[in-house]
Amino acid sequence: MGLMRRSGVALWRQVQLSLESQLSDGTLQPGDQLPTEAQLSARYGVNRHTVRRALAGLEERSLIRVEQGRGTFVQEPVLSYRISERTRFSANLRDQKRVPDRQVLEVTMDRAEGTAAASLGLSRGDALVVVRCVSDSDGHRITYSEHMFPAQRFPGIGEAVRDEGSVSAALCRFGVTDYRRKWSRLTARMPTGREAEVLEQPRSRPVLVSESLNVDLDGHPIEFGITRFNSDWVQVVVEPCAPELPTT
Results as ranks from 00 to 15, higher is better:
residue 1 M to T: 15
residue 3 L to T: 13
residue 6 R to S: 15
residue 6 R to G: 14
residue 6 R to N: 15
residue 11 L to M: 15
residue 11 L to D: 13
residue 14 Q to T: 03
residue 16 Q to Y: 06
residue 18 S to N: 02
residue 21 S to E: 14
residue 22 Q to W: 15
residue 29 Q to N: 01
residue 33 Q to F: 11
residue 34 L to R: 13
residue 34 L to K: 04
residue 34 L to I: 10
residue 37 E to R: 15
residue 42 A to M: 08
residue 42 A to D: 02
residue 43 R to C: 11
residue 45 G to N: 13
residue 53 R to D: 10
residue 58 L to V: 11
residue 63 L to V: 10
residue 65 R to S: 14
residue 66 V to S: 10
residue 66 V to T: 06
residue 68 Q to P: 11
residue 70 R to F: 09
residue 74 V to G: 00
residue 76 E to T: 13
residue 79 L to A: 08
residue 80 S to C: 08
residue 81 Y to M: 01
residue 82 R to Y: 07
residue 85 E to D: 00
residue 86 R to I: 04
residue 92 N to H: 07
residue 96 Q to C: 04
residue 97 K to S: 14
residue 99 V to Q: 00
residue 99 V to L: 12
residue 100 P to L: 10
residue 101 D to K: 05
residue 103 Q to G: 11
residue 112 A to M: 04
residue 117 A to M: 06
residue 118 A to L: 04
residue 119 S to K: 07
residue 119 S to R: 07
residue 128 L to A: 06
residue 128 L to V: 01
residue 129 V to K: 02
residue 132 R to G: 02
residue 134 V to Q: 10
residue 139 G to K: 03
residue 140 H to K: 13
residue 144 Y to M: 02
residue 146 E to D: 12
residue 148 M to C: 13
residue 148 M to A: 14
residue 149 F to M: 02
residue 150 P to I: 03
residue 150 P to N: 04
residue 156 G to N: 12
residue 156 G to T: 05
residue 157 I to R: 00
residue 159 E to A: 02
residue 162 R to E: 15
residue 164 E to N: 07
residue 168 S to G: 14
residue 168 S to P: 04
residue 173 R to P: 05
residue 175 G to K: 01
residue 177 T to D: 10
residue 178 D to I: 09
residue 184 S to V: 14
residue 184 S to F: 15
residue 185 R to P: 00
residue 187 T to D: 12
residue 191 P to V: 07
residue 192 T to D: 04
residue 193 G to C: 02
residue 195 E to C: 00
residue 198 V to T: 00
residue 199 L to S: 07
residue 201 Q to V: 05
residue 201 Q to D: 02
residue 203 R to Y: 05
residue 208 L to F: 05
residue 210 S to V: 13
residue 210 S to C: 10
residue 212 S to N: 01
residue 214 N to V: 11
residue 214 N to A: 11
residue 216 D to Y: 03
residue 218 D to H: 14
residue 223 E to H: 08
residue 225 G to E: 03
residue 227 T to I: 15
residue 229 F to Y: 14
residue 240 P to A: 00
residue 241 C to F: 12
residue 244 E to N: 03
residue 245 L to H: 02
